[in-house]
Design a protein around this nucleic acid. Structure first.
Length: 271
DNA sequence: TCTAACCTGATC
DNA sequence: GATCAGGTTAGA
């Protein structure tokens, strides 16, 4: 599910809603999503105040004092919800965080359990998973973006999905970016002019910004922190539109498989 | 650089 | 029953 716009949406909501909240306890019903032991979590979390909620790539973090952070990755089906009722009955609820003097609880739910949660003292050490991330697409210069891709081999779509090159793009937003930049997802970057790669960077920034404004894409499992749906799925131009007409030329959108992932594109428009 | 594997559920 | 799904990664 969740790519950069979906995580950014959650970050903005949760920052607004729980900044200043102090954790009182954490309930762990499934340890398999934890990369930090339940024992340590229960020892460290209570009493910590949420100073900020932030994002790096597809990772979200609750920021405490002294650079202590609680990191979340939502995998394919992860959800971070702010709930008031009894959330523990809902299947696949793995963690529930409670706050001092507050009714709301932060609930981590993940059907397929590809997500993960871990604590880190960022002052001592940046977690390896975070450290290896490439730059944020919206914070990198177009020329640098083009340069990062140019020096690699492989299909452009695979490279955009590689989080160590650029972080935050997933299957939806790579396809949507490549469509807008009119680049064939199967093409190798050494056969794409630098100008076009820079155009691709602009396309990615545009798509990401629009998706954030729409609150992300809710196709299957992604939900806002209040359980509501994102809206950007209605604006997808190629993703999930196999056989339907291209918005620009009317030809049928094609589906192929790249890096084991479905890839949607218009063979007429994307060269 | 690419594939298979990790998991569960929905759909064909 | 087989196939597919917003991700990541260990191993070939």
């Amino acid at each position: 599910m969740p790519e950069l716009p979906e995580i950014e949406t959650l970050v903005r909501e949760l920052r607004q809603k729980i900044s200043g909240f102090v954790f009182s306890k954490v309930n762990v019903s499934n340890e398999t999503v934890l990369e930090t032991s339940a024992t340590e979590l229960k020892k460290i979390i209570p009493g910590r105040c949420v100073k900020n909620v932030s994002r790096r790539g597809k990772y979200l973090s609750f920021d405490f004092e002294n650079d202590y952070r609680l990191w979340f990755h939502l995998g394919m089906t992860g959800q971070l919800l702010l709930e008031t009722g009894s959330s523990s009955d809902v299947p696949h609820t793995h963690l529930i965080f409670e706050f001092s003097g507050r009714e709301e609880k932060v609930v981590f739910r993940d059907i397929r359990r590809f997500g993960c949660v871990f604590l880190a003292d960022s002052k001592k050490e940046i977690p390896a998973r975070i450290k290896r991330l490439g730059p944020e697409p919206m914070q990198v210069e177009p020329q640098q973006f083009a340069g990062l891709l140019k020096k690699r081999t492989g299909k452009i779509k695979s490279l955009l999905l590689n989080q160590t090159i650029v972080s935050g793009l997933g299957n939806i937003y790579t396809d949507e970016s490549l469509y807008r930049a009119k680049v064939d997802p199967r093409k190798r970057p050494d056969r794409i002019p630098v100008q076009k790669l820079m155009h691709l960077h602009q396309a990615a920034c545009d798509v990401l910004a629009e998706a954030i404004s729409a609150g992300g894409s809710s196709i299957d499992d992604y939900r806002h922190s209040d359980g509501s749906y994102g809206k950007f799925q209605d604006s997808h131009r190629v993703y999930g539109r196999e056989g339907r007409p291209c918005r620009d030329c009317g030809r049928k959108i094609r589906r192929t498989v790249i890096s084991g992932r479905s890839s949607f594109f218009c063979q007429q428009c994307q060269k």
